[in-house]
Write a protein that binds this DNA or RNA. Structure first.
Lengths: 132, 132
DNA sequence: CTTGACTCTGTACTTTGGTACAGGGTTTAT
DNA sequence: ATAAACCCTGTACCAAAGTACAGAGTCAAG
């Protein structure tokens, strides 16, 4: 059982079958080999690929950005500063997101433990915390 | 110049005018007072509100989640465990996102500094790192 | 006091990321 | 060998988050 049908893949990755085909159309997963019947035969790694996509999506990357992310990994001219630059840009993006989330979290934590700062009718710090 | 027209607001927050009206319809920003003509008059704080929404969106919250986030801040009976519970749930969400982002970042950072680890034709760790 | 820039409501269109058939062939378990 | 359960392509539909008018009224600068 070296390979998966589209249904098995979808189940393992916990997505809709149609989503798998959609990702293929979008170029997010490679076109798999087919058998004579035309049935797709997925290598097991494709499960990880789809999980990656799901996670990345959850944290705010668009499918377009995700395919950029994925293409970094695959690009064959390894030492190319092009690739490196793109990876670095992505890292910047990610750091930015982390910062925003951390500020958000602190603010919420303040809210949870008694948040006396939230005086009635005055400005709650939640917005303040997120002004760049 | 205590208040802003919708156009001024949109410009300051760097969004489309239509987006502002859309956020109003969605309840993400409060309905502002109007003058006789019907023109909206926004208090300057609304700029911060919209910036908040933009940031939250960028890091993967839906507008629906964002209005939940915003409603936490406004709820008057702050000691209610209801509010507390919701805030705690949001914190969990946020922590999860941060973790994913950190793993992603490390992986990319590994890629950047001399991606010798990416042996030809073998599995690049980028996927591995993101398998839950 | 008019002209150009702005705003109003309402409706319709767009993009992104899927989902859902329809109509037909394939596999597999009994 | 025949259902039940899969899979195929293609097209259509969906929700979320805007965006874009149309047709009409308002503002403000010269």
């Amino acid at each position: 059982m070296e390979s998966l049908t589209i249904g098995q893949l979808a189940k393992k990755a916990d997505v809709n079958i149609e989503t798998v085909r959609y990702y293929e159309r979008r170029g997010l997963i490679p076109e798999p080999p087919r058998r004579e019947s035309g049935y797709r035969q997925y290598p097991v790694e494709t499960v990880a690929r789809i999980l990656f996509i799901k996670r990345a999506k959850d944290i705010g990357f668009s499918l377009k950005e995700i395919s950029e992310l994925l293409s970094l990994r695959v690009d064959p001219d390894r030492s190319s500063s092009e690739v490196k630059k793109r990876a670095e840009a992505k890292i910047k993006d990610i750091e930015e997101k982390i910062l925003i989330l951390q500020r958000m979290k602190e603010t919420l934590a303040g809210l949870v433990k008694g948040c006396d700062g939230c005086r009635p009718s005055s400005e709650c710090p939640i917005l303040k915390a997120l002004e760049k």
